[in-house]
Design a protein around this nucleic acid. Sequence first.
DNA 1: GGGGTTTATGTATCCGATTACGCAAGACAC
DNA 2: GTGTCTTGCGTAATCGGATACATAAACCCC
Lengths: 337, 337
Amino acid sequence: MSRPFSRVTSYDVARLAGVSQSAVSRCFKPGASVSRKMREKVMKAANELNYTPNAIARGLITRRSNMVAVVVSSRMNFYYPELLFQLTDKFSDRGVRVLLFNVNQEEDVGRHLSQIWQYQADGVISAAYLSIEQHRRLRGHNIPVVMFNRYFDDYATNSVWCDAGTATSEMIDHLINFGHRRFALLNGPEDSMVNRERMRLVRQALKRHDLEPVTQAWGNYRYESAAVAVQEIRNAGKKVTAIIAANDMMAMGALDEIRNVMGLSVPGDVSVVGFDGINAGRFASYELTTIRQPIRRMTEAAVAMLVDRMEEPDTTDEKRVLTGAFVQGTSTGQAPA
Amino acid sequence: MSRPFSRVTSYDVARLAGVSQSAVSRCFKPGASVSRKMREKVMKAANELNYTPNAIARGLITRRSNMVAVVVSSRMNFYYPELLFQLTDKFSDRGVRVLLFNVNQEEDVGRHLSQIWQYQADGVISAAYLSIEQHRRLRGHNIPVVMFNRYFDDYATNSVWCDAGTATSEMIDHLINFGHRRFALLNGPEDSMVNRERMRLVRQALKRHDLEPVTQAWGNYRYESAAVAVQEIRNAGKKVTAIIAANDMMAMGALDEIRNVMGLSVPGDVSVVGFDGINAGRFASYELTTIRQPIRRMTEAAVAMLVDRMEEPDTTDEKRVLTGAFVQGTSTGQAPA
DNA sequence: GGGGTTTATGTATCCGATTACGCAAGACAC
DNA sequence: GTGTCTTGCGTAATCGGATACATAAACCCC
């Protein structure tokens, strides 16, 4: 047996303080009706024994674990750590603990799903791909879910989403003003909703100028995947002056491939843009022109939405849409002649 | 009240299957003595009701939550996400859940400490600063602790540590061979054990060549802090041909400052090295010469150590030391004439 | 078929808290 | 001092499983 030591329980405190166990419990419940005298006696005994209430036992009876599951994916996309730490801090501020689930590239969330309800998570924030079926299963266990950067078209959910429409137009205008006409798209995974949406917006913005991409390639959102994609773009043989990547990680990979492997200049020969606004994109080696997600406000929204629904399970579904901002860096410039 | 729905319990399954509750419990415990018939009956009922055991309730009686606390810090050091995701994956493989605690720059772990035992974490892996006193408090609750990249000099603990001695010598030799004689140190925080140790090794290796740093500056392990430090080094007025940073993040910041802000060449004018071997350091814009921690094996060791001690609490303390490897990148080269 | 052993199941208790309920004591008005 | 209202505390049930123990069933060998 592990931990054979008997732990300090409310009974121990009660015995020492000469009161009932329920009195001890009440003393640790904020807002309970306890006399000053009682509270002092109990707290003294509790301190003496170094007692703290057992959150697991409490969770059993209250049916509230005060834990949420956070599901993130894709270790090698710097976007996720930023997201994760911000969520964690915000939950922590609200007295909610985070159970972390990591879904590796192309792995399925399913593997972790049952853990989420077995451990009685009070809610889930998912920034990984979740099927409607999986979502439904969570709901079946009465666990509120907030999806981050995803939603379903015809199935109501809570989600936080970033609308990059305006910003994308600005970005395309910016490139057009610099004389760019020949664009290549560096897509993320084909099944990624974020990718589809971003690229749709890009094509739409291009169309307004009667343009469309001259070529495209696919990556998996990770840095390394951009190098191959950039070579594909080059091998396509069409002249390209600007590459639009579906996220910053790939934009960084593309920039490095162009600058450091192909020996061309960014933005002298090719301009590169991304999406997300991750911290690493601001490093002096990159200074990406990008569309920044308001990640602070998005995580704040996600946490608030989830906590609301943990407390008030009947709260109706909601999709909160925050707008992304166009950020000009030095990875874009005048198109070559 | 949240989640007023009654959940499916082992009693419900027992009733439907026409057996006792304890039989149901046994069916879900691997290795318990249950007849084939019974197992089939129970599983059928369980499936029908969509039952899964409540891990919280189980934890109460077994006194094993199957959760560990992972404490990391410093959001803006890319080392931590790598570490965190690897730990999480490895725990996940062993059927252990991760409760994440994030300690922001200069914040104290203390804020989270009581949560760790209130939530009955079976163990702790800490990659954040933990005082002996705090460590002792965890022990007082019979929670095994494994410290990552830290240990105490005169207080026994479990820890995983990376010995960079040999690699540091190689790194210095490498720089010396390139003709470098004038080194600047870019320290991490003064109270960081890792920083002290790394810098001690560097000085020691230099001393073997009858050298010592010509100047030094301090940062906080984060990218941005390196820019200021590099300026300080320059303002010191001593000619420097190589900068030795206490970690890769600062090495990257230094490299960017030198190359992109000061307009000098790395390694043409100045060579830069770091410590850690983070993924971002391999990006083509950096290609840092560094000392790589065997992070896979280190996380493996940490997880194994912790799980051992969760199962066998009397296991004696252990310090596992893995050796770092010198990795040559292109951030170092011939010293200028 | 009988005695002994092994295996499977049920009964009852326990983990460590929360909380509905009831009663005793204190507060208050008259 | 009596009657009513409030407040504070203790008793006991409960959350959902695990498990010691007892007992019943199955098995084995001769």
